[in-house]
Design a protein around this nucleic acid. Structure first.
Lengths: 221, 221
DNA sequence: ATTTTTTTTTAGCTTCGTCTAAATTTTAAA
DNA sequence: TTTAAAATTTAGACGAAGCTAAAAAAAAAT
């Protein structure tokens, strides 16, 4: 499957925004892409139809695994070209971004893999950002209990252990389920309770609960 | 000025066809670009409006100096990337063309000049075709008398020496003037006369006449 | 619990590059 | 030289990706 430059740019930007925002919203994305909200809505419908993201009107969107895979491959291309421009053509780290924005849309897996090899399979681009692996797999997908999440890092609930009726009741009341996106905002050392930011609200959870909620998130390691 | 990928492809292809055809025609170009004649006509109107080519409805087209300059810069980019792909990424000469078709449309003069430098300012691409110079100037534009033209090489009449009335009368009768495109098809050794192919017709000229007609053409040296 | 403000979506229009089908012009043939 | 065939252009349409302005929904404020 091949995607247009535009589609790739949307996916890439959503991925980037997802790292620090619970759910990406129309205005936020329009802003990041320097386009208008109406254009974003149009594209969201298209990408949703292609099952590259979850889109509920008025709610926001987040990438599906398929969408994430594409976003990562665009980012891989971008960062490898940046590395090439800086390392081989001696451009400054501040000059490479614009050129890489164009080069990243050349879809030719073999080309990118050969480039990777030629460059010595670098792990980081000139800005220090990690370069995703060749296989398109998310080497950077982390899974930890909510209690161990780094602060301000957004992720999605992927598993709940100890499924007692009492706990499920509590989760239902707090509106937490598989797929819910959230981030830990604060750790209170007094009782190890956590302040959790969700799309609209901020809630507090006990450590006991947090230990049983597992989160998937993409990190830069 | 920046041109779209489409515009660049049309210009590049016209340039290529001009090397071996008197005047590029709609069907021929549609064929080369794998598009339809109607699409070609549309684009010709646009490029004509931008003064990148001469276009007379139903007659065909040829590049203006401005159009030639752009075509050459696209070809420069194409061939430098081909060289890079073959020399640095170890692709076979038969694999590089498709990738270069995409890379060639990245318009960033500094990038291309740095690439050129990085590659050691190569003169020929992996197919043996010459790489146009950085300044966009036509290093490859040759000027010779018609009598000395290589066979089957098309070019345009650019000068006529010895402008006697008799000679001008003859030229007028043969419908040859400044800008006329033609190629030498045969040399008859018996009397050094030449068989000349023009757009519709084939004529014969004496050596005396051919010595006084000068031609500009783009060659691969 | 309304009302106001903000956000998001819809509707309709624009440009670019393409297409098909019909009309026109040029070239070739009878 | 009139007719038939081929090449070219015009007319009208479409899909992508964008825009503006108006409508609708959600969130915030009174």
């Amino acid at each position: 499957m091949n995607y247009s430059t535009s589609e790739e740019n949307y996916l890439k930007t959503i991925f980037r925004l997802q790292e620090t925002e619970a759910v990406v919203t129309t205005n936020r994305l329009a802003d990041a892409l320097k386009t208008k909200p109406a254009s974003v809505t149009d594209m969201m419908k298209k990408l949703n139809a292609k099952k590259l993201l979850h889109y509920k009107p008025y709610y926001g969107f987040s990438l599906t695994p398929a969408g994430t895979k594409i976003a990562l491959s665009v980012i891989r291309r971008h960062r490898l070209w940046e590395y090439f421009l800086a390392e081989k053509l001696h451009f400054g780290w501040d000059e490479v971004h614009g050129m890489a924005e164009q080069l990243e849309h050349i879809q030719h897996k073999k080309l990118i893999d050969r480039l990777d090899e030629f460059l010595g399979r670098p792990a980081f681009d000139p800005h220090g950002d990690p370069i995703p692996a060749s296989n398109g797999k998310i080497k950077t997908l982390q899974k930890t209990s909510l209690a161990q999440m780094p602060l301000n890092q957004y992720g999605s609930v992927c598993q709940v252990t100890n499924q007692s009726a009492e706990m499920l009741e509590l989760l239902q009341h707090k509106k937490i389920g598989i797929g819910t996106r959230l981030a830990v905002k604060k750790h209170f050392h007094f009782d190890q309770s956590l302040e959790i930011k969700m799309k609209q609200t901020t809630i507090t959870l006990s450590q006991e609960l947090a230990n049983n909620i597992f989160i998937n998130y993409e990190t830069k390691i």
